[in-house]
Each structure stands twice: as C-alpha cells, then as structure tokens.
Amino acid sequence: MNLGRGPLSRRRFLAAAGLASALALTGCGGGEAKGADEKSVALVTPQKAGDGGPTDNLVSGLATLKAAGYSTRHVAAPDPSSHESTLRNLAQSGTPVIVVSFSDFTQVLKTVAPDFPKTKFVHIYSDPYKPEMPNVQTVSFDTQGPSYLAGVLAATVSKTGVIGFIGGTAIPSLYADYHAFEAGAKATRADIVLKSAFVGSFGDPVKGQQIAQTMFNNKVDVVLAYAGGSSVGVVKAADQAKTHVIYDNVESDQTAGSVIAIASQHYGGTMAKRVRGIDDGSWKPGGTVAGLADDGTFLDRAKKFRAEAGAPDLDSAFKKVDETKQKIVDGSIDVPFDTDPV
C-alpha cells in the first residue's frame, strides 16, 4: 500500500486503520471465550524465569500442575503497561484459572477481574483485597513462622551469643520478621544479643557484604539474611569470616561454606495447591495465608552445607527446630506479629 501519494490513498489507509481499531475494541469488550480447556492455568509474573528465586519457584509449581494433567502457560510481563492487556487477553481466550504474582498486579487485577466473572484469579503474595472479590483469591505468606524458627536455630548454634538480622529494606513486613526472629532467639536463650541492619535495597550485594562484615567484626556469628539479591553479599562475608547464614535464596555450591539453613516460601507448591483446590472444591475467594502448617513457608536445613572443623552441631539444633515447629503448628507457641520499627 502506498501511503504517501494522494488523498485517496491516505483516506483508504485511515479507513482501514479505523476499521482495525473498531474490530480490536470489539475484541476487548470483556466477553469470555466459550469452550475453553477446563483444566488450563496461566501464570503471569512480573519477571522472566531464570531469577533463581520466586519466579523459578512459581514456574516449578506450574510444572507440577502440568504433570497432573493441566494445560499450562507462563507469561512474563516485565512491562507494567502490558499487565492489563495480558490479563484481558488470557481471560478472553478462555483461560479458566489465571495466577498472578506479587504486588505489581494488585490494581490491574482489581480492574480486570470484575469483567471476567467466570475466570478464577489467584494472586500469589498479596494482602487480602478490600472489598473481597468473588472470583479472586489472594495468598499471603506467614514468614514470621520461619523467622521464629531461624531465631531458635541461630540462638542454638551461636557460640558468641550475638546474632544478626539483615533485611533488604526497612518495611513493616521485615520488622515483623525481625520481631519473630528475636522472639524465637530469646525463647531459646534469654541472654542472646541481637544486632539488626537494613541494606536499603534488595539488589545491592556489595552493601550486603559490607553490613555483614561489620556485623561479624562485632562478634555476630550467625545471621538471618532476608535481603533477596543483597543476601549474596552476606554469604560472601560469612565465607570470609567463617560464620554462618540462614539464607532466603536458593542454595548452591557457592553457599556451601556458610549457609546452614534456608528460610523461604514454597511459592510454586502453594500455587499448585490453590489451583488444584478449584477442582476439588476447596477453593474460596478472599484472603488466605500459607504458612508452616501447609508447607507454604519453611525453614529447612541446607543440603549443601559443608561442615568443617568447629562447625555447629546441626543435628541437635534442628531437632530443637522441628520440636518448635510442631508447637507452632499445633498452636502451643504463639509467634508474635509486630510491625513496629526495630
């Protein structure tokens, strides 16, 4: 088509463009496609797979669902401006279950979900919506449980009696984790001393290393690192200082020298359980919490930890951790939820 010559060509082009726009708008009218695959699920994440963290974990949950006979699809939508169109396109194409992750999608989902009442949405890592929406389930994670257990573990294995907490940014949820960590440590050893610091970013391993190094210079010998990408630096400092870390990322050969435990969330497993709940009838809209009881959150012994001379006795420490976990699950220990600043 020659667009540059004469008014007739331009008019034709504009008419064609107008027609195309009208058709596109008709397509965006909000109708849900008929005859969709009933055992189909789409996962939409704000990051691509390959982060070695939450996104990979969610994608592994998708693989679990695929093995269980679901038709699965993963869409990475790093550009926030594409979030609404991505969700609408998936819903219009008849995807019966759409899982989104993290707070990036909160406003968009509140806009899109009412237009697709037959589609069920699961929002992983989100606070409950107010008001509740009939086709949206949110899943938040009780990270205070593993934080309390980390306190028990750190206080048990510490030789100096000084333990540390390194958070990514100073936000209420991390304050709550710190207070749970402190409660677990003090319940185990009343005279334990705690030091805490925040990196100011979840992506600054260099500063994470400097904070940890400063802590280790101040007699700290076990640290709970809840700093995402910055935790890599904490591990490096611990390797240098021959101290120990309770880590919030995936363990690897590089963490084998210092990481004694992993405190994190099973995003993928939790997502798979919630999606299966739609078929077995246990799904309900509104806010839900995943925690120690349903394996949504965990404190696990690091499988790759290389115990060297002078290493702590992790067998007896984890025996204590397991006993404490059982008490938290059966309600005999009440883990505090305190979002006051540290």
Binding site: P205, V206, K207, G233, K236
Partner: peptide, 16 residues
Amino acid sequence: ELSLAQVRSFSDNIAQ
C-alpha cells in the same frame, strides 16, 4: 573492584 573484590558476583544494577 565492585564485582570481584568482595562479592565475586554480578547482579542486575549492582552499581546502585
């Protein structure tokens, strides 16, 4: 110095 002195790693936007 930033990536190989202490942390021996590179992550997205490490210069911060």
